[in-house]
Design a protein around this nucleic acid. Sequence first.
DNA 1: TGGGAATTCAAACCAGCGTTTGAAAAACGC
DNA 2: GCGTTTTTCAAACGCTGGTTTGAATTCCCA
Lengths: 210, 210
Amino acid sequence: MTRPSEVTRDRIMKAAERLFADKGYDGTSIRAIVAKARVNQAAINYHFGGKDGLYREVLRAAFRGMTEDQLAHAEDMKTLSREEALAAFIRRQLRPLMARDESSRHMRLFNWETVRPTPVLRALVAEEAAPFMNMAADLAHRFLPDADRRTLTVASVWLIGQCSIFLRNRERLAEPPVGLEMDDAMVEWIAQVVSRWLVAGLGAASSDAA
Amino acid sequence: MTRPSEVTRDRIMKAAERLFADKGYDGTSIRAIVAKARVNQAAINYHFGGKDGLYREVLRAAFRGMTEDQLAHAEDMKTLSREEALAAFIRRQLRPLMARDESSRHMRLFNWETVRPTPVLRALVAEEAAPFMNMAADLAHRFLPDADRRTLTVASVWLIGQCSIFLRNRERLAEPPVGLEMDDAMVEWIAQVVSRWLVAGLGAASSDAA
DNA sequence: TGGGAATTCAAACCAGCGTTTGAAAAACGC
DNA sequence: GCGTTTTTCAAACGCTGGTTTGAATTCCCA
């Protein structure tokens, strides 16, 4: 576990996860990673076979972690009303705006993929993202019990995409002409408002389903 | 107008607009542009002062065009019910999925900026995007007449971000595990469904506003 | 403890990028 | 038509990516 080689591997993963989450794949250079991790430049190629391999590994770990998060919350979700469950779902999506912990980084990594798919890893993403998709699909199903598969699919994708504009534009939204300072209170409030709109939207749809 | 120098300028703009719309700023290289436009590589620097200058010009033109589109539709919007207006707004956002005409390219360019802000041009974007923001704000206001400024702002941003996940992931969504083939009928149908959810969501909120 | 494998390291390599250069060609005004 | 300006062009420059190299070092186990 704490073999010397494992620690550099770990240092690289940690540094890479942070940088990829903040700047995305293209925005992160090998040299930036090794500087942050304080390891030699060739170490990435030695341990991961290249930048792609490292990214694959980081993304895989992030998805695993995120899936665990989701599964852990999935139990709570069942005890919540569908409205509360949806609100929790949205709040978790917006959480990276305030928190800088591990699961927030995972969420931001995932968000890069939803918004700017990395050419390298379609297969992995498709595979690992499935549990997350199911989560959203279950949620949608609670609001649209009579909907067909296609409707549920679109609803899931739509729910997952709800918050990316806020995540990707934190700094810009703070400036004119928008002027939304993203402090904790604001994020919490946005989560509430958006949740309310979504609940009302999907909730109404369930009653007048065709 | 048809001075020889103008034609190469125009060829460059045309090619660049297409490539930037498809691949974004970082994904598009000078060499790709000049190959498509069939002009010399130095022409971009000569006519636009560099890649940044060219992008600024393309983006400015695209925003101008898009603003015109929006203003043109703004009149129609007033004659429509708020529900129909919202549906039209969403349909225009999704239009780039089916059409490959000029205004679709403008919309896709704008979408790149909402989703992955270019460091170069914050000022321009903030300035030129204002009319589009106002459009969304007006729309939100019709559903939330009693809402405060902050709520309207969030609602506008939220509306603008609704469709980016569909625009940016056309190819991926077509594959498993999602499997949404984006033909014209599908796009039209998605526009309808999403519009209905939004209408119901914002419509309900107006009645129980705090 | 000795020897082979695993790991680190500084340095270089190579490809692609945006940009610059300086001369050749074309266009323009008189 | 001529001299000047504008515009094109092929080539190269400098820089930053990711990757490779080969020797030096460290680790690990017989």
